[in-house]
Design a protein around this nucleic acid. Structure first.
Length: 357
DNA sequence: AACTCGGGGTT
DNA sequence: AACCCAGAGTT
């Protein structure tokens, strides 16, 4: 076995993580769920969501039978909601096309929605013990440093080279359990030792062969993404109050916050009273402009101007299924984005708020 | 190849 | 405020 893999496996026995919630068994469903939740999301953030999700939907069958709304509700706050929608689609696909048995070949796994090459490989490794290479943020960091590879890992050229290194470094002549340990060791080393800033090279099992360490380039690698300043967007949120209820609208998918519930959003500068008359067919009275809510996405910044409005006419005028009237406390149990959760809490549920319901 | 999709943690 | 995180899908 290569020194690289062997050193990692030896290191993992003493220093790796062995008690994460999804490490209890080889249930493909449990492993698949964990891998999807962990896409672009840190372990400590995922754990409570994962535990709740497994309690609510302990099997792929129970997930497949659930309504999407229930799935999104459990996902609320975790972000990247297309993951939840794809999870739901895939659960039904596995039930229907694979008789509830998760496919075990990496290629087949990779064809399922929401599962790319790295996630498919992780599932193949941890659920089925197959010898496949992963390439996540941890692995990219370790390999760019160990082999001294410069260039932003998002570029195709660099990414292809990293995949090649990942495959070449696999423990080919392994026996039972080695590939799982090796794969977990890569991620644990990336999390605990080969960190983005201030890596603990003196504690690293790969230090004697690490090119970046030899050449004193550890803090130069991996090459950071060239960033553009984020465009600033603004929007008005209409908080329409009718007695104890507010109006929520289900947003279209695909798109930002697809299928999640939000107060109606309009561009700034649009006359609110007129908009409600013409587009919602509701007579309203403007109460107050609530404090601005700033939110940042990967590719733009959104400044939300929440406007509190009182409904004068009957609320029953809106009957489209994409609109609902709901108590703010009930809205928190639905699939709503994080800023909306924050807004509803501080406006309607805080003891300090004059609009507390 | 470039762009779209979130939210939270860290520094 | 910038950067990153067990990336994937679309165009």
């Amino acid at each position: 076995m290569s020194t690289f893999a062997e050193q990692l496996i030896i290191w993992h026995d003493q220093h790796g993580r062995h008690h994460l919630p999804w490490q209890k068994n080889r249930d493909p469903y449990a492993i698949w769920l964990s891998e999807v939740m962990l896409q672009q999301t840190q372990v400590n953030t995922v754990i409570p969501y994962y535990v709740r999700f497994m309690q609510e939907f302990p099997t792929i069958s129970s997930l497949a039978q659930a309504p999407l709304d229930a799935v999104l509700s459990l996902w609320s706050g975790l972000g990247y909601y297309s993951r939840a929608r794809n999870l739901h689609v895939t659960a039904r696909k596995v039930m229907h096309h694979y008789q509830g048995q998760f496919p075990c070949a990496r290629e087949a796994i990779q064809h399922l929605p929401g599962i790319g090459r790295s996630t498919a490989a992780a599932i193949a490794v941890f659920a089925f013990g197959q010898c496949e290479a992963i390439l996540d943020g941890n692995v990219k960091r370790i390999f760019t440093r160990y082999f001294g590879i410069s260039g932003f890992p998002g570029e195709t050229k660099t990414q292809n080279l990293l995949w090649k290194k990942a495959e070449e470094s696999l423990p080919i002549h392994y026996h039972n359990g080695k590939i799982e340990t090796y794969t977990q060791a890569l991620m644990d080393l990336g999390t605990a030792v080969c960190t983005r800033r201030a890596p603990l090279c003196k504690a690293c099992p790969l230090q004697s062969e690490c090119v970046a360490l030899k050449e004193n380039r550890v803090d130069q690698l991996p090459t950071t993404k060239p960033r553009m300043p984020l465009p600033q967007k603004e929007a008005t949120f209409l908080l329409l109050m009718h007695q104890q209820d507010i109006l929520l609208e289900q947003r279209p998918a695909p798109g930002i916050w697809g299928e999640l519930w939000c107060p109606p959003e309009i561009g700034i500068g649009i006359d609110v009273i007129t908009y409600c008359q013409h587009n919602l067919n509701i007579e309203v009275r403007a109460l107050i402009e609530l404090p601005i809510l700033d939110h940042q996405f990967t590719h733009f910044k959104l400044r939300i101007h929440p406007q509190l409005l009182q409904v004068i006419s009957s609320k029953s005028l809106i009957t489209q299924p994409r609109f609902i009237w709901t108590k703010p406390s009930d809205a928190l149990a639905k699939g709503i984005p994080a800023p909306v959760r924050k807004l509803l809490k501080r406006t309607f549920l805080s003891e300090l708020s004059p609009y507390k319901i």
